[in-house]
């Protein structure tokens, strides 16, 4: 798998990426190359800038300087919807769904662009069996079939998290970015979601922010450790775990907390 990162072409490349909010620099020069088909985890203490890094990559915020390339293409100046159309889909740390629409509608909407419906006003969504089937299959996968016709806003927290992931993966994007997908889930829910993530990201590129070290070490091909806006280490899980700098800055404390 890691051969992809050394020989294969990169799915995502960050080049001297920086971001300041006012005077404070939050992302302080990040270089990272994530291979096609790689599962990459980004870990680091609270406030390190992990979510900000996601926001820079996906076009939510403009970067102060530096470059982001998706499959070799520069993303500078592109809006989130343009980046999404290039095959990148993300989830949010703070649940970001369509609260007044039904669970089914949430998922169906996330399929529309990816399936080529674009701004069509000549298709009836209810008459597109491919949409209905795909949306129902996703509901089945995220265990929300029984909640199908409820407004998404009334779901429990864990259910909304599952929906968030479902929406992100529905379109079948090639690069999937998940910001703390298991936060707030119980052990069994976490296990289930991790299995699901593993299954649907088969052959795809996954970039994931995660605090649960069990999840990280179970899923990731490579790990980057972000501390105060800088990547202090990148490598295979065992390399990162053994890295004294990482031990000192973050992992020691985090692993202790696990046990």
């Amino acid at each position: 798998m890691n051969s992809a990162t050394t020989q294969g072409k990169a799915a995502l490349e960050l080049d001297g990426l920086r971001k300041s909010f006012g005077k404070t620099e939050i992302i302080r020069g990040v270089d990272l190359s994530i291979g096609d088909g790689e599962r990459h985890a980004i870990i680091g203490p609270n406030g390190a800038g992990k979510s900000t890094l996601f926001n820079l990559i996906t076009g939510r915020f403009p970067s102060t300087s530096g470059k982001v390339r998706l499959n070799g293409q520069d993303l500078a100046g592109l809006a989130p919807f343009q980046i999404n159309r290039m095959g990148l889909s993300r989830s949010f740390q703070i649940t970001n769904i369509f609260p007044k629409m039904t669970v089914f509608e949430n998922v169906r909407c996330s399929l529309l662009w990816a399936r080529g419906y674009k701004y069509s006003f000549w298709h009836m969504v209810s008459r597109a069996p491919d949409l209905t089937e795909a949306a129902e299959a996703i509901l089945e996968q995220i265990n929300l079939t029984e909640r199908r016709d409820l407004p998404a806003g009334v779901l429990s927290y864990a259910e909304q998290r599952a929906l968030e992931i479902g929406i992100t993966m529905a379109g079948g994007a090639n690069v999937i970015m998940l910001d703390e997908p298991t936060a707030g889930m119980s052990h069994s829910e976490t296990d289930y979601i991790v299995d699901l993530i593993r299954k649907v990201t088969e052959g795809k590129t996954l970039i994931m922010v995660e605090h649960d070290m069990g999840v990280v070490f179970g899923l990731a091909d490579r790990i980057s450790v972000l501390v105060y806006g800088e990547i202090i280490a990148t490598g295979r899980p065992e390399e990162v775990r053994a890295n004294p700098k990482v031990q000192e800055a973050y992992l020691g404390a985090a692993l202790e907390a696990e046990h």
Binding site: A79, F81, R85, S89, I97, P99, C109, Y119, G171
Partner: peptide
């Protein structure tokens, strides 16, 4: 359908293309 989605949460709609 997307008009409803944009009404509810324009930002998320942008991340769906």
């Amino acid at each position: 359908r997307m008009a409803n989605a944009v009404r509810d949460n324009p930002e998320r709609a942008e991340f769906l293309g």
